[in-house]
């Protein structure tokens, strides 16, 4: 029952009950953002360290606001200001942070498994805020929270995820969470950005063309294309990518009439999504952002508000 973990490292091993507990708690936290006084004392005296080895203003800010609205002391450590750049190993950095007795560490790192490495090493709760191409559980959960505002999260729902699946932690975390809830997931990527065998291991349907993925979809999730991947022979040009895989108004018409359009941000307007769609009536992209704070409050609260002394 409920959510009783020390860490939130991914959605892969979360049960449906755990996912729903997190979403229901987040639902309750939404209300706090509407108060004139947007602060509750739940995590007063707790320290939340945002340890970001990769720059990410959005995610870090979202966690910071979440922590502060729970009255926790939020400390931001980014790779550019810490000793990380001086050749110190991750383990050394973490040992140093542990010595300052934080309660929760939020970690963003460019390599897979960094959060797991930290979580196995220390007693504080660890929230994975993105490890390489592996997982970004709070993003997936806030996406689910956003979907739940418009659609029922249950079998019968169809979600299309389009973009660079191979290198996307957002895609992976969404795939695990959605399929755990029995939701149909279609993925579509250029063949160079599609992990071999994903169909079998993840229980998703792989579509060759975006049109196939969009057909009747209830939710359309566009992924950010890393423009620097062009240099690595993964796609010929931005123009070519936009032409074949970009979401525009015509393509969106293939989806169900009340489909919602999502994007984890930051967007490359005119590449994976046209401005017309990003700012259009189907778009819930800004809802994702505000739900991010509520969802992260729920995560911090459930991890930090429990008796593990």
């Amino acid at each position: 029952m409920g959510f009783r973990r020390k860490d939130l490292l991914g959605t892969r091993d979360l049960s449906a009950v755990e996912i729903r507990t997190l979403l229901e708690s987040a639902e309750s936290f939404k209300e706090i953002a509407e108060r004139p006084l947007k602060k509750v004392p739940a995590l007063r005296g707790k320290t939340v360290v945002n340890l970001f080895f990769e720059p990410s203003t959005r995610t870090r800010t979202s966690f910071e606001i979440a922590a502060k609205r729970l009255s926790a002391d939020a400390v931001n450590i980014s790779a550019s200001t810490s000793s990380v750049v001086k050749g110190e190993s991750l383990v050394d950095t973490v040992d140093n942070i542990q010595a300052m007795a934080p309660d929760i560490i939020v970690v963003r790192h460019k390599f897979v498994g960094a959060a797991h490495l930290i979580a196995e090493r220390i007693g504080a709760s660890v929230v994975n805020a993105g490890d390489g191409a592996n997982e970004h559980p709070t993003q997936a959960l806030l996406d689910l929270l956003t979907i739940s505002e418009h659609k029922k999260l249950e079998p019968g729902l169809t979600v299309a995820i389009i973009g660079d699946i191979a290198h996307s932690r957002v895609a992976r975390s969404n795939i695990w969470a959605l399929t755990t809830l029995g939701i149909t997931v279609r993925v579509c990527a250029p063949p160079t950005m599609l992990p071999r065998g994903l169909e079998e291991i993840a229980g998703v349907r792989v579509c060759r063309r975006p049109e196939e993925a969009l057909e009747g979809a209830d939710v359309v999730m566009m992924l950010r294309i890393q423009l620097e991947r062009q240099d690595r022979l993964l796609f010929p040009s931005v123009r070519d990518y936009a032409r074949i895989f970009g979401l525009n108004r015509q393509r969106l018409e293939l989806a169900c009439p009340d489909a919602i359009v999502m994007h984890p941000g930051p967007m490359n307007r005119g590449v994976e999504i046209t401005s017309e769609v990003a700012d259009g009536k189907h778009s819930v992209i800004l809802n994702q952002v505000s739900n991010g704070v509520a969802l992260r409050m729920a995560v911090l609260f459930l991890l930090g508000g429990q008796g593990r002394e």
Binding site: R12, A133, N134, A166, R172, R196, G197, E200, I201, A202
Partner: peptide
Amino acid sequence: HEGMISAGHGLAG
């Protein structure tokens, strides 16, 4: 190895 674990965990295969 490029296989089920690399696909599932995003480690380069």
